[in-house]
């Protein structure tokens, strides 16, 4: 166990001829922001899906907090503290913001087969909801249905929900996707604030954002890891520069 929260060992996944993840190995230390970067189509989301359990790997192992979770289902992984946000916002569109957040809080609490008392008035929710909303700046919008939120607010809700269950590892799949500069700044602030609470695997393709936030970076190109190290080292890395410059 020790300092590692997550270890990925020789993870493989193909879609037909597309090898979206080839023999990928890396480790994430506790209490850091670990970025997974790579150009479009590099396989970042595929890795996130493999880690969260939405995809089954063709081979390899995933060790989370010392336990092999390769065969666990998504919901089982979430229960032991592995939370994620999605690149394409996945919130409960019909429910209000408060309900979305309350649900995220309750989901990991267990004891949800309670049929009588109002969910929004249960003690856990009363205790944690205000903070959870405040953290992602959605207090004013709490009565609105999620589908009526602006794009930026939805992204905030997305991240907030992933956080609400008090995970030990948070996988954020391009949290700034489609955000303007304002939204990016807001989310960067939120993510920085989280650093002491939870380990973060930040999936991003925007290099600038990553360099300002990450403690450690893994670079993915065509499903394979081409570089792994602290930001300064990655910035200097010839292979990384070639991959990014070659594409852009």
């Amino acid at each position: 166990m020790g300092a590692e929260i997550l270890a990925v060992k020789r993870l493989r996944k193909s879609f037909g001829a597309v090898r979206a993840c080839q023999d990928l190995s890396f480790t994430v230390q506790r209490g850091v922001i670990h970025a997974l970067i790579g150009p479009n189509g590099a396989g970042k989301t595929t890795v996130a899906n493999l880690l969260s359990g939405e995809l089954r790997p063709d081979g390899g192992h995933i060790i989370f907090a010392g336990a092999d979770i390769t065969t666990l289902k998504t919901y089982q992984r979430a229960r032991i503290g592995l939370a994620r946000s999605f690149q394409i916002t996945q919130v409960f569109e019909e429910l209000s913001v408060a309900e979305n957040m309350a649900l995220a809080i309750l989901a990991n609490e267990g004891g949800n087969f309670r049929f009588w008392h109002d969910a929004l008035c249960s003690p856990v929710v009363l205790e944690r909801l205000p903070l959870a909303l405040e953290r992602v700046d959605l207090v004013a919008q709490q009565k609105m249905a999620a589908k009526h939120l602006s794009h930026g607010e939805r992204r905030q809700l997305e991240v907030g929900m992933a956080l609400a269950g008090r995970p030990t590892l948070l996988i954020l799949d391009e949290p700034m996707a489609g955000q303007g500069p304002g939204g990016t700044r807001e989310l960067s602030r939120i993510i920085k604030d989280l650093k002491n609470e939870v380990s973060i695997l930040l999936v991003e393709h925007d290099m600038q954002v990553v360099f300002s936030l990450a403690d450690h970076i893994t670079v993915l190109v065509n499903g394979a890891c081409i570089a792994d190290g602290p930001p300064e080292a990655i910035r200097q890395d010839a292979a990384v520069q070639a991959a990014y410059l070659g594409r852009q």
């Binding site: 979430a78 939370a83 409960f92 429910l95 309900e99 990991n108 949800n112 087969f113 049929f115 992933a162």
Partner: peptide, 27 residues
């Protein structure tokens, strides 16, 4: 009462977005 209860909330969540509810740790 049921639809507003904890069970009801989880149920409504499960029926609106399966991916999300599973990622939150709900079967």
């Amino acid at each position: 009462r049921l639809v507003r209860s904890r069970f009801g909330l989880v149920l409504r969540g499960a029926s609106t977005n399966t991916r999300r509810i599973r990622a939150l740790g709900v079967h």
